[in-house]
Design a protein around this nucleic acid. Sequence first.
RNA 1: GGGGGAGUAGCUCAACGGUAGAGCAACGGCCUUUUAAGCCGCAGGUUCAGGGUUCGAAUCCCUGCUCCCCUACCA
Length: 568
Amino acid sequence: MRVRSCVTEHIQEQNEEVVLNAQEAAEEIHRLEQQRRENREGVRALGFNPYGFRADGLKTLAQAHEAYDEGADNANKESTQAHKQAKRDNPDLPDADLPQIVDTRPVVRVAGRVVLSRDNGKLVWLNLRDHTNDSFQIAISKRDCDENGFALAKLLDNGDIVIAQGPLTKTKTGEVTCWASSLEPASKCLVPPPEKRLGLQDPDMRYRQRYVDMWSNPDTTRTLMLRSKLMSAMRRYLERHEFVEVETPVLQTQAGGAAARPFFTHMNALHLDLSLRIAPELYLKRLLVGGMPRVFEVSRNFRNEGLDKSHNPEFTSLEVYQAFGNYETMMDLTEGLIRELAQIAAGEQGISASAMPFGDLLIDYERAFDKVTYAELFEKVLGFSMGDMDKVRAACEARGFKTKSEDGTPIADIFLVNELFEEVAEPTIDPARPTFVLDYPASLSPLTRPKPGTEQDPVPLADRWDLFIGGMEIGPAYTELNDPDIQAQKFREQLSGVDDEESTFRSFDEDFVNALKVGMPPAGGLGLGMDRIVMLLGNQRTIRDVLPFPMMRPLGGVGNSSEESDAE
RNA sequence: GGGGGAGUAGCUCAACGGUAGAGCAACGGCCUUUUAAGCCGCAGGUUCAGGGUUCGAAUCCCUGCUCCCCUACCA
């Protein structure tokens, strides 16, 4: 009871606050909004509801444009001319005896947002926009449109949504136009819109008010719709390959499957501290143990790390696991998937998948992806074998890379090898050619099966590849480790090998090891960064441009953190 | 984390120590084939916020807020 009354009080306080804010806001209505409110009243005075009703039988603006019938339009124009000419020649004849006007022009009903308007007095031109067409012209003439519709046209503001109906014709400059017989309001835009040609430019405003960005910059909507189409095509592709989509927990008692700092939250009912998932991997593998042979999850992952043009704190990965597959199975699957998505994206944009623009690059998704092993690429670029530790250490020192940690202990050889690889070898991969880099050092891949026969090599390898496109890492795939003893040992190594700061977010998942004890079939596993794939195929430079609502710092300063960051 | 840049009318931008302007949008008027329509008229500002220097600050200095770029970190 006590809790309830507290809650009630709290809600009351909140409500009072809302009322106060609303009053303050009401006093501060901008003059431009006020004018729009007055126009809205004018629309009401005509007998319309400015917020409209259900409308059936609407065509998209693109469909309407398609429906234009040249023959019918010409027949109408010619017969109208003949009628007028005859009337001039025989002013006394009744209309019934004059040549009749033929009108078989298709009539369409369309809806859209007003992006331009030109008022010529007795003829008003509107250009409407929807998701299929940036600018479709409507003419509302005093002669041909119903009286209320014509009066409405005079009261419209840019940004309003309207429904127009009428026959399709071409103007004398050749533009397909709906010559309205009626016009109705569908919704009012009370907020003054951005500049009509340039759209909303300020990137901050574009992300914060995506709903304005989307209609004022149609490319934004196109990119977000491309994202949907690619996600849908990805599901179709995987289902065609007999994968089933599953959903695994986002709230986890220990976030695993990747090395990343998680977000934390608390569950009241069980008095549990929980973290949001950083990867779905360990749960998907449990499903393989249970007997699902081919699974995938479109996983929203949360990582409490920095933001930049390829990192958002929540992002979408595709993870795929195939029992009795390996990392080569995953390579074929991935290449096929990405090529198919590229073809779909290319089709949307009317270009070829063999030359898709990404910044200054033209990326070819049609030809077979390049393949190179980690060791080959290392040796080709560095000029010596990655097993030659003296040269590795010397090369690192020559380049000024750290070879000792803060307390003076030498950094493990394999991290030096990887430092050289990432800093020197990786950048030489041709960004215009999708490239698989195969066979990573085993110590860098704790959840991966060691490559048979390399255990005694200077650098033991693992069945792992990474795919690089456009200079970005798109995702890795593995032959999954299914030996519970090796897995347990890798967990232990990871825990002991990291400093205190990092150990807070690496954990030994005993239940996962138990699952492997029950027996997981050999399997291939794959993780793809879907946001980055949409960036590549939609030619967008930043991850923010492929997310409808990217993470933004709240306006107004201090933020809402109840305490100072505890993890710095 | 480090360095650089930006914030001015609803929007896009000028003005860089001396009366805050333009284009678009808006508002009033004219106009039945316009295409960023046109013509005439009229209005619109806490120059991000707060402090300082100065006779005088959008402009120079300091602090804060927000964004952008580079860099660093990052399975």
